[in-house]
């Protein structure tokens, strides 16, 4: 059984009457890629700040590798690397100088400092940029450097607050691939918040959806997908027999006809069964869309929140 890395019990943060995080209970295990989803103000950043000992919880407790983050924040912070949404690097320093500063803060011995810095710059594909001032870096490069900066202390946990915000899809893909390597190959536990549902679904081992400071859904992406799925089929011709055949598939909750479209709502992923029916009948399909269920769940909670 994997070791418990992060544990929170009834973790709560209040600012006056406003509750930013409400009785959060989390258990994150070694090597896990754990994603927190939620809109702005859901309490994700506040949760991270409490885990880093930067904000004192109003109630509850949090532990990182068994160290209470409020009573012993330094021990917890020795094991955690943090990448904020805005990297907080010094633009007037070079990539190497930024890493040297963080290495000094972490007491990395001089003898191994230079090698570790160059290894990390290579890992984040910035070795050629080592002596260039960070002010000249793109957003994606800064974010990769911030990851290297967080890794300088060789942490066991990496907490990332919206690491792909404002970065183009290619840059986001690079960052998430790097995180996946760190998680799968090096056993670093990743706790990340993001808005990019499709990436979260693809990379996350487990996902928690936060709304108004609470976790409203949590589990593996596949288990969350089980809840709902929507398939839209654009057909040249639609007959009633097709509608009834689709309605007969196990797990289908509803089949709606809208012009040349058929919308199938199901309690699980039934794409395979639908395509079997269509290919058997020889219907001509001009387009298919599968609404990712996570997106639907996400939208559902936020619609409730707006209401």
């Amino acid at each position: 059984m994997k070791n418990l890395v992060i544990k929170t019990v009834n973790l709560t943060k209040k600012y006056g009457d406003f509750t930013a995080v409400k009785s959060l209970n989390l258990e994150i295990y070694e090597g896990e890629f754990f994603c927190l989803l939620g809109p702005n103000g859901a309490g994700k950043t506040t949760t991270f700040l409490m885990l880093l000992g930067l904000t004192r919880p109003t109630y509850g407790s949090a532990w990182i590798y068994g160290h209470d983050v409020t009573k012993n924040p330094l021990e917890a912070k020795k094991r955690v690397g943090f990448v904020p949404e805005v990297p907080g690097l010094y633009d007037d320093l070079t990539a190497r100088e930024n890493l040297v500063f963080t290495a000094e803060l972490n007491g990395v011995p001089k003898g191994i400092r230079e090698k570790r810095i160059m290894d990390l710059l290579e890992k984040v594909d910035l070795k050629e940029w080592a002596d260039v001032k960070v002010g000249k870096f793109s957003r994606g490069m800064k974010q990769r450097l911030a990851i290297a900066d967080a890794l300088i202390k060789e942490p066991k946990v990496l907490i990332l607050d919206e690491p792909t915000a404002g970065i183009d899809p290619k840059g986001s893909e690079e960052i998430l691939s790097l995180l996946e390597i760190l998680s799968k190959n090096e056993g670093i536990t990743i706790l990340m918040s993001s808005h990019l549902l499709h990436y979260v679904e693809r990379y996350g081992d487990r996902i928690a959806i936060m709304s108004r400071g609470e976790i409203v859904a949590m589990g593996e992406p596949s288990s969350l997908i089980k809840g709902e799925s929507v398939i839209e089929l654009n057909l040249k011709e639609i007959d009633n027999l097709l509608v009834s055949e689709l309605g007969g598939i196990k797990g289908v909750k509803e089949v709606r006809r809208e012009g040349n479209k058929i919308i199938v709502l199901a309690g699980k992923d039934i794409r395979k069964e639908i395509f079997e029916v269509i290919s058997r009948r020889g219907d001509k399909v001009s387009g298919v869309s599968f609404a990712p269920s996570l997106e639907k769940i996400y939208a559902k909670y936020f619609k409730e929140e707006k209401a």
């Binding site: 880093l52 330094l74 020795k78 949404e85 805005v86 907080g88």
Partner: peptide
Amino acid sequence: SGSMLKILSNP
């Protein structure tokens, strides 16, 4: 600039 957050996330 966020650098304070970064500094204080270190031990």
